[in-house]
Design a protein around this nucleic acid. Structure first.
Length: 569
RNA sequence: CGGCGUGUGGCUCAGUCUGGUAGAGUACGUGCUUCGGGAGCACGGGGUCGGAGGUUCGAAUCCUCUCACGCCGACCA
């Protein structure tokens, strides 16, 4: 590939709207250009890397026995009404009508389409298990797209769906995908962890996220420093270690607390620590309004509230609802006398009594004891895990890290197959719903995550398997044209050997070529200059290590070919 | 959707407060000199100053409305 004819516009300055390093570098290196918020064009070099990720994904999916299909981006409302998600899915689902006033949406995911397909085409246990996947453009109308292609509205995703005859088969399919994902991200050269995750609105019984470790990640991961345990903080269980409090609680005493609302204010006013206070939070859910108490220095985890109730959604209640159940403005909620069920976090077992709001303006209680002053609706793990908490699996401690979610796998069960009647006949001739799993990989996000993990002040440092080109050859200008002729010869030889080469034959000064080669992050650079030519040498430089060598011209092609092939995934 | 902020040549930005008819750097074109880590000089092309309306003799600048984009929050498969 000749650089002079490539649409590969590099920039010296960071774009004004980019925040994270991968976004800045993808833009500066001419890999992407923005069309609208969260919507991007893939430029030639960027597309080459994107295709590399896709091909790794494709190879591993095929190896795992999955079959590739391609489903439409535009989906009819009927399918979504059938699954029940037309009403459930929020504004992220971009809806529109055609000229006949029929409702459609841009597919944010394809459970409906695939389940409908399998319902029509698969009828016998003899056809199962089956795993179908696609690499396709999704659209989710995110409220706030950011970080370039990392959280775009339109993005390329690999989504796979498995169909099994029974639960055991579904788990086998799940584990196959887990193994395939591990291979995929290893081949992409990423430093990642697979963690337990909340299965969220998609439903289903269990799920893992594949997280690339990076400070710019949008998710917090709780990992054990001793065993292999890892989980999204949304999901991470907090070990129930609180010993039941001994001794009698003092009688409850109401205290006037004018204008004292926050935990800090309460602690300062009452002369207690946050560990002695129960923070009461009111949640609105589709199973009704509930109150949740956690220790004053902890945060309640809405995902756990949701799961405890078996609800589809749980969010902090509006001020109006808080007034309704507590009879007071926000800041004075407490478990005693509140007009909704109260769930307590396990950790509060350690307190015989605690300080809490009195459900009336400017008042708190001291000495509230669960079981005596009020009857909890239940005890459960309801708070977010924190760094330093005990590992739920072993005696180790939890550390919290940031991660980029590049893949997510779910065991779905029969939620969609039952709703959409994707049934098959078993060996006994009985009709049964398929047991499903679904498995996603953000292809563009994986590529961005690789940059996030591999860069320096000069630009991208591509892992060889994802690099748009494996080798860049820089003929430095001379009067005779000998450097160019030599570079062309080497380019030809490498291409013969199946190496992907970018030949920078632009009439540019050496500094420009060096800077662009670094910015683009091509793993191996070969410089042909008058200086080395005199000695009969080509000069090599590895982007990742900075290591330079002089290699004889008649050996350079073989040397470079071996260098690249050793590092391919 | 709430809070804050920004829209001026392809990119990065100045000019706006204090109204006088649009600039710099970079990128691009031509020429000369250069040529091993983003060269120098000269000349040149390129701008509805996000859009609409208003005030004014005169608006990038002041006022009103609107659109787009960004950050924080909430939200999120």
């Amino acid at each position: 590939m000749n650089y002079s004819k490539l649409l590969l516009p590099t920039l010296k300055e960071d774009p004004a709207d980019a925040e994270v390093v991968s976004h800045k570098l993808m833009f500066r290196a001419g890999l992407i250009r923005k069309v609208a918020a969260g919507i991007y064009t893939w430029m030639p070099a960027g597309l080459r890397s994107l295709r590399k990720v896709e091909n790794i994904v494709r190879q591993e999916m095929d190896r795992a026995g999955a079959q590739e299909v391609l489903m439409p981006a535009v989906q009819p409302a009927e399918l979504w009404q059938e699954s029940g998600r037309w009403d459930y899915y929020g504004k992220e689902l971009l809806r529109f009508t055609d000229r006949h006033s029929r409702d459609y949406c841009m597919g944010p995911t394809h459970e409906e389409v695939i389940t409908d397909l399998v319902k029509r085409e698969v009828h016998s246990y003899k056809q199962l298990p089956m795993n179908l996947y696609q690499i396709q453009t999704k659209f989710r109308d995110e409220i706030r797209p950011r970080f370039g292609v990392m959280r775009g509205r339109e993005f390329i995703m690999k989504d796979a769906y498995s169909f099994d005859a029974d639960d055991q088969g579904a788990e086998e399919s799940y584990h196959k995908m887990q193994a395939a994902y591990t291979r995929i991200f290893e081949r992409c050269g990423l430093n990642f962890v697979a963690v337990e995750a909340d299965s969220g609105a998609i439903g289903g019984s269990f799920s893992h996220e594949f997280m690339v470790l990076a400070e710019s990640g949008e998710d917090d991961i709780a990992a054990c420093n001793a065993c292999g345990y890892g989980a999204n903080v949304e999901k991470a269980q907090v070990k129930d270690t609180a010993a039941k409090a001994e001794g009698d609680a003092p009688a409850a005493e109401k205290v006037a607390t004018p204008d004292v609302r926050t935990i800090e204010e309460v602690c300062a006013f009452m002369g207690v620590t946050a560990q002695e206070v129960a923070k009461t939070l009111v949640f609105e859910t589709d199973k009704g309004v509930v109150a949740v108490c956690v220790r004053g220095d902890r945060d309640a985890n809405p995902a756990k509230v949701k799961n405890l109730l078996g609800a589809n959604a749980a969010e902090l209640a509006s001020e109006a609802v808080v007034r309704e159940v507590t009879g007071a403005p926000i800041g004075f909620a407490g478990p005693f006398g509140i007009k909704c069920p109260v769930y307590l976090d396990n950790e509060l077992k350690g307190l015989a009594s605690f300080v809490s709001g009195a459900n009336e303006v400017d008042a708190h209680y001291r000495g509230i004891a669960p079981g005596r002053d009020f009857e909890p609706a239940g005890w459960s793990d309801l708070r977010f895990i924190l760094e330093g908490d005990p590992c739920p699996r072993c005696d180790g401690q939890v550390v919290v890290k940031r991660g980029i979610e590049v893949g997510h796998i779910f065991k779905l069960g029969t939620k969609y197959s039952e709703a959409m009647k994707a049934n098959f006949l078993d060996a006994d001739g009985r009709e049964q719903p398929c047991v499903m799993g679904c498995y996603g990989i953000g292809v563009g996000r994986t590529m961005a995550a690789a940059i996030e993990q591999n860069n320096d002040e000069n630009g991208i440092i591509w892992p060889v398997p994802l690099a748009p080109w494996e080798v860049v050859i820089l003929p430095l200008s001379d009067k005779t044209g000998e450097t160019l002729a030599t570079a062309q010869k080497i380019t030809g030889e490498l291409q013969q050997a199946g190496i992907e080469v970018l030949l920078d034959e632009r009439d540019e000064r050496p500094g420009v070529k060096f800077k662009d080669a670094d910015l683009l992050g091509i793993p191996l650079r070969i410089t042909i200059g008058a200086r080395g030519l005199k000695e009969g040498n080509a000069e090599t430089k590895e982007r990742a290590t900075g290591e330079q060598q002089n290699i004889a011209l008649d050996e350079i092609s073989a040397w470079a070919t071996a260098w690249v092939k050793e590092r391919r995934a």
